[in-house]
Design a binder for these strands. Structure first.
Lengths: 198, 198
DNA sequence: TATAATTAGACGACTGGTCAACTATTAAAA
DNA sequence: TTTTAATAGTTGACCAGTCGTCTAATTATA
């Protein structure tokens, strides 16, 4: 095992632990002390693996994206289903994660950080915006297929419909936290099925 | 002028100034020092007018609601327009505030605080949830009227449609911050008109 | 022995909050 | 009308603790 690999493995371990904290508490409420304590490393080591707290956050965003987007992507691109079915499976898959894994508490880390930091930290804003645009691109492809198949509503063009549904999801996550309930997520899925993708 | 009135006037002045900070930066990134500096008062005075930083935030939420909900309410209940027109005017009114006054930066203070604090501060969560439910009630009344008038879509019941549209708005505010653009707001209004309230 | 990896502890700045001393205002008593 | 006592409002120094960051020293590897 090379040193750089070992280095990266340890950095990833710290990221994995600290990411959960920043996901739940946000950027400003998560201190470097919290992270090193949770990861069980001395404080000095943090700055051997990361340039700064901001650097940690940016790398946490990258890791979050890699860990969480991959599985959802598999659902979105599963050729066993029609484009419309893949879209519905994709939204259901993400809804279930919010409902079951996260107990209606934490929402999406990228959305949380964007909401808290976008106005004041351009690096974080750009990083999250890039991730969003990648997700958007993948959904859009399937959305266009579904429209061409005449499987879903054509009154609104695919780009606007894609953006719209992504926004509903983001908003439902805020309401979910606010109400401490999965009802907003359930409602979102229901209406997407009823009105948007019919 | 009674003492208590004078007291309340000064407390309101501090709130007005500090609220803007907390709106923009969030709870954890706004220090008591920031607030007293912006308000031009000594630090000691802060704790004469407020029990704690949390108490300040709760009172800021109340003031935000009073200052911002009233004008929107007038639009929603303007009897010169039909229920559907009132709904559209209402959503347009709020969209314009986001676009023009806030330069696509700050979003809604209640949503911001809910997203940042709901999981970790039950008082703030409950306060914001209460405000949301009041807004919801007013929109719902008009939404039901519009459905009874056959002015808008009846495929989804009024409650779910109301919640859904509120969530789109919340999500569009996150995307607005993320992209630093009013495009998500414009898109939201367009699709509400095209698909939901037709 | 030379180099790389790791770390303890300290840095100055800042956190939310307290407090005793202070002045301004008010109302009752003389 | 003046004096007095009580209260309301104001103040900055100060607390213990934490913040993000850095460096000098140590330990492990080659």
């Amino acid at each position: 095992m090379s040193k750089t690999l070992k280095h990266d493995l340890k950095a990833d371990a710290i990221l994995n632990t600290g990411m959960e904290l920043m996901w739940s508490r946000g950027y400003n409420a998560t201190s470097v002390n919290d992270i090193v304590k949770a990861a069980g490393i001395p404080k000095g080591s943090f700055y051997f693996y990361f340039d700064s707290k901001e650097d940690f956050a940016l790398k946490a965003i990258d890791m979050y994206f890699e860990n969480h987007f991959g599985p959802a992507m598999k659902v979105l691109n599963d050729e066993n289903f029609s484009p419309k079915e893949r879209l519905l499976n994709f939204y259901e898959f993400r809804a279930n994660i919010l409902r079951e894994e996260l107990h209606c508490k934490m929402g999406c880390m990228c959305c949380n950080l964007a909401n808290e930091m976008a106005e004041h930290n351009e690096e974080i804003r750009k990083s999250v915006a890039l991730k969003s645009s990648i997700v958007r691109g993948h959904i859009l492809k399937v959305m266009i297929e579904a429209q061409e198949n005449n499987e879903i509503n054509k009154m609104v063009d695919a780009e606007h419909l894609t953006d719209f549904i992504e926004d509903v999801g983001k908003g439902a996550m805020i309401t979910m936290k606010e109400m401490n309930s999965s009802q907003p997520i359930d409602n979102t899925i229901t209406i997407i099925k009823t009105l948007l993708l019919r």
